[in-house]
Lab assay of single mutants.
Amino acid sequence: KEMRNAYWEIALLPNLNNQQKRAFIRSLYDDPSQSANLLAEAKKLNDAQA
């Protein structure tokens, strides 16, 4: 469930391009235990690109 939530949050971040989203989501599938960390990194990048 945590992975699914992280997937959708990443997919809906407005300032990431599709390539960036795909990279984060690929990492999510590679290591679901890192969901919270990956989401935090994606949000950080999203904010930096705002």
Results as ranks from 00 to 15, higher is better:
residue 2 E to P: 05
residue 36 A to G: 11
residue 28 L to T: 02
residue 32 P to K: 05
residue 4 R to I: 14
residue 27 S to V: 08
residue 50 A to H: 12
residue 28 L to W: 03
residue 16 L to A: 00
residue 10 I to K: 00
residue 36 A to D: 07
residue 15 N to R: 04
residue 46 N to T: 01
residue 39 L to G: 02
residue 17 N to E: 07
residue 37 N to D: 06
residue 4 R to Q: 13
residue 7 Y to T: 05
residue 2 E to G: 03
residue 39 L to C: 03
residue 35 S to Q: 10
residue 13 L to P: 00
residue 10 I to S: 00
residue 27 S to P: 02
residue 48 A to W: 14
residue 23 A to H: 12
residue 48 A to E: 08
residue 41 E to M: 13
residue 9 E to P: 02
residue 33 S to F: 08
residue 44 K to A: 04
residue 49 Q to K: 05
residue 29 Y to H: 06
residue 12 L to T: 12
residue 36 A to K: 15
residue 31 D to P: 01
residue 46 N to M: 01
residue 29 Y to C: 04
residue 48 A to F: 15
residue 18 N to C: 08
residue 32 P to M: 07
residue 3 M to T: 13
residue 11 A to Y: 14
residue 39 L to V: 14
residue 24 F to R: 01
residue 9 E to V: 13
residue 14 P to A: 10
residue 29 Y to Q: 08
residue 21 K to A: 02
residue 39 L to E: 02
residue 35 S to V: 09
residue 11 A to P: 02
residue 34 Q to I: 10
residue 41 E to L: 11
residue 7 Y to V: 05
residue 35 S to P: 02
residue 32 P to L: 05
residue 10 I to Q: 00
residue 2 E to C: 04
residue 7 Y to N: 02
residue 7 Y to Q: 10
residue 24 F to I: 05
residue 5 N to D: 15
residue 49 Q to G: 05
residue 2 E to F: 04
residue 13 L to V: 00
residue 44 K to S: 10
residue 10 I to G: 00
residue 6 A to V: 05
residue 50 A to M: 13
residue 8 W to R: 11
residue 50 A to D: 09
residue 5 N to K: 15
residue 27 S to Q: 09
residue 47 D to P: 01
residue 28 L to A: 02
residue 49 Q to L: 12
residue 12 L to S: 12
residue 32 P to S: 04
residue 37 N to S: 06
residue 48 A to G: 13
residue 40 A to M: 14
residue 48 A to C: 04
residue 2 E to V: 05
residue 4 R to Y: 15
residue 3 M to S: 07
residue 33 S to V: 08
residue 41 E to D: 09
residue 14 P to V: 07
residue 35 S to Y: 14
residue 50 A to Y: 12
residue 25 I to M: 12
residue 12 L to H: 15
residue 48 A to I: 15
residue 44 K to W: 11
residue 26 R to K: 10
residue 26 R to V: 10
residue 36 A to S: 14
residue 10 I to V: 05
residue 46 N to D: 06
residue 17 N to C: 03
residue 3 M to A: 04
residue 15 N to E: 03
residue 39 L to T: 05
residue 38 L to K: 06
residue 28 L to G: 01
residue 32 P to R: 04
residue 19 Q to S: 14
residue 34 Q to N: 06
residue 50 A to I: 13
residue 6 A to R: 05
residue 48 A to R: 09
residue 44 K to P: 00
residue 11 A to G: 03
residue 24 F to L: 06
residue 49 Q to I: 14
residue 37 N to F: 11
residue 10 I to A: 01
residue 24 F to W: 02
residue 38 L to V: 14
residue 25 I to R: 03
residue 19 Q to V: 12
residue 31 D to K: 14
residue 50 A to K: 06
residue 29 Y to W: 04
residue 34 Q to F: 08
residue 27 S to W: 14
residue 19 Q to T: 12
residue 33 S to K: 12
residue 19 Q to L: 11
residue 37 N to Y: 08
residue 42 A to Q: 00
residue 38 L to Q: 04
residue 20 Q to M: 04
residue 15 N to V: 02
residue 17 N to D: 04
residue 8 W to Y: 13
residue 49 Q to S: 09
residue 39 L to S: 04
residue 1 K to Y: 07
residue 45 L to T: 07
residue 12 L to A: 12
residue 15 N to S: 05
residue 31 D to Y: 10
residue 29 Y to I: 10
residue 27 S to H: 13
residue 21 K to V: 05
residue 2 E to W: 02
residue 15 N to I: 01
residue 16 L to E: 00
residue 37 N to K: 14
residue 34 Q to G: 05
residue 6 A to D: 03
residue 42 A to H: 00
residue 25 I to H: 08
residue 33 S to R: 08
residue 19 Q to Y: 15
